[in-house]
Write a protein that binds this DNA or RNA. Structure first.
Lengths: 146, 146
DNA sequence: CAAGATTGACCAGTCAATCTTG
DNA sequence: CAAGATTGACTGGTCAATCTTG
């Protein structure tokens, strides 16, 4: 473990904690749900009309399968998504975003975006370079060019 | 919000989730405590003989003051640190690492380091560049050069 | 018996209120 | 009355076990 890599890792931890903290605070101040709700609703918005199976949704969200069940329970309770029985496999269900869910996304995004602009984008010298550095870490199996 | 910055942010989220997930899994597989314990013990190891006040420790750890109280409770219960009443201010206490705590740090670090090497350092093309990109985000008040 | 998803028991964190001392 | 720290009530997450269907 060389010192540069360790310093970079510490910087990543610090950057993540700071930006996430500010995003959550901004959402709360605006009377909006936490970021996890956005993370669930956004893949549903981009999915086909049928929606997504719980398993597919879990793959998009950094949460356990169990945790996703509870999270979807809460979001469904607010009417922002609905479960629909899967016609071809009666073990599971599809999750679909509702019009109210789409409206919530449209309310959350400006708040999220504003924090990203001010706390993240404004502080990063070269976002394209940052992306090049981090994507190989985010995507398993990819290794840096030798 | 330009597309590059958003992509970089997504890459940061993905990299963080992946590496943290692997670190926690490796620690658990080795029968060791979670990373949060390391985050508490390490500043104590670097502190003076007196240790650190709860407030100073909270500033080092990304957790609320309340959460730190409970976390320190648990770690103290395992004998890895101890609270000592502050002689000059009887409202609070100093927290000091114990020899068992130092031993635990020495057991945790190789596991932590191995994951950082394999999942983070090996995938980052240029750690020094990554650090330069992220430090302004991690440290509030610093802005990118115009 | 394996896979999708949920439920139960439990662990860890937050906010608001409290206790103690400066 | 302000500040350091803790406690109580609650929210949100995980693991192990369960239920249902393929």
């Amino acid at each position: 473990m060389d010192a540069d890599a360790l310093s970079a890792w510490r910087a990543l931890l610090g950057a993540h904690a700071r930006v996430i903290g500010e995003v959550e605070a901004a959402l709360r101040q605006s009377g909006l749900p936490p970021l996890a709700w956005y993370d669930v609703l956004w893949p549903l918005e981009r999915a086909s009309k049928d929606g997504l199976r719980m398993g597919a949704l879990a793959a998009e969200v950094t949460i356990s399968r169990t945790g996703l069940t509870r999270l979807v329970d809460r979001i469904e309770g607010r009417g922002l998504l609905r479960r629909h029985p899967a016609p071809e496999d009666r073990r599971g269900a599809y999750v679909r975003i509702t019009p109210a869910g789409r409206a919530m996304l449209r309310r959350m995004w400006p708040v999220y975006e504003r924090v990203l602009d001010e706390s993240f984008a404004a502080a990063v010298p070269d976002a394209r370079a940052l992306r090049r550095e981090l994507e190989p870490v985010a995507v398993p199996g990819v290794r840096a060019a030798g």
